[in-house]
């Protein structure tokens, strides 16, 4: 904003800036410049999303079609990533597997965040609820998440929904604790106390003041949950307590290929690379988000 100075007024000549303005670059290029790792992560993640959505059009065939006569073929022009023990095309299975991993990762992140947010808000605003909820959360937190997910899977039949549910339940306590912490610190803030004093009703306070401030740390947390969920899905499938084996998921492909690890390493190798790259991408995006939202945190973690 510039101030128009009437003519004839005596003013000092403009001082040169001691610290010249750094003109922040705008647009995509500027973003990449400022956050190279996050941009890299986001690009990788977008690529994986692309693969998941367009899997049928990327030179794949039916990932469940058997051809026992063509089993365990090395990677070739016919089978880009080779074929597995039942002669299924590993390339197609890995590409379709992207769908399951991303679905599990994102669903768990969204569900755990939403439920955790609700529980965290509840306990942040109600002392009685708080003492009960937090005891339950402490109890659940003391069960290692993978073990909790495994135990829940033992109760149910293997399906993608159940995997999502089991991992979500295992992740909720951590989210609730985070949200509750944020809520408690925000309640002490003068502007919130002022709002309370002026008679604003609790829902309004939550929606106007608390919620917007929890979203930032929650988003960061959600990306880490997403990454952890994809690894957990792979581990569950790997030990045989995860996604049903007729649905190709990276964990399943690795679990089926593990016996042949020494002779046909590529069956494990390709899904492992895809999984690692995707998790890496999500982690990079998470780190970038965290730095962008709260530069102080960048130093802390």
């Amino acid at each position: 904003m510039s101030i128009t100075i009437p003519a004839g007024t005596a003013v000092a000549p403009p001082m040169p800036d001691i610290l010249p303005d750094v003109k922040p670059r705008r647009g995509l290029l500027g973003f990449i410049r400022r956050n190279p790792t996050m941009a890299f992560g986001a690009a990788l993640l977008l690529a994986m999303l692309f693969v998941a959505v367009f899997a049928p059009f990327l030179g794949t065939r039916d990932p469940t079609a058997l051809a026992p006569a063509l089993r365990t073929r090395e990677p070739s022009a016919q089978f880009w990533f080779g074929s597995d023990m039942l002669g299924r095309d590993v390339y197609s299975r890995v590409l379709y597997g992207t769908r399951v991993s991303l679905l599990v990762g994102f669903s768990v992140a969204i569900c755990a965040s939403a439920i955790g947010l609700f529980i965290g808000l509840m306990s942040g605003f109600n002392r009685i609820a708080d003492s009960i909820i937090m005891r339950v959360m402490d109890g659940m937190m003391s069960i290692p998440p993978i073990l909790l997910a495994i135990a829940l899977m033992a109760l149910t039949r293997g399906s993608v929904q159940n995997v999502i549910l089991a991992i979500t339940i295992a992740e909720i306590p951590r989210v609730s604790r985070l949200v509750r912490g944020v809520v408690l610190s925000l309640r002490e803030q003068p502007y919130v106390e002022a709002a309370v004093a002026s008679g604003t009703r609790t829902p309004a306070i939550i929606f106007k003041h608390i919620l917007p401030n929890t979203l930032a740390p929650l988003t960061v947390q959600a990306t880490y949950i997403c990454a952890a969920a994809m690894i957990t899905e792979a581990i569950l499938s790997f030990i045989g307590a995860g996604t049903p084996p007729i649905i190709p998921s990276w964990g399943n492909i690795m679990a089926e290929g593990r016996a042949l690890w020494q002779v046909k390493p590529y069956i494990v190798f390709f899904p492992a690379i895809f999984l690692s790259i995707t998790v890496l991408a999500v982690n990079l995006v998470g780190d970038g988000l965290r730095d962008a939202i709260d530069p102080r945190l960048a130093k802390r973690l």
Binding site: I235, F238, R258, A272, S276, L284, D287
Partner: peptide, 14 residues
């Protein structure tokens, strides 16, 4: 460190 978070333990093991 980021890599350590991203590669599943059984892959490293094998």
């Amino acid at each position: 460190a980021v890599l350590g978070f991203s590669v599943p333990v059984f892959v490293v093991g094998y």
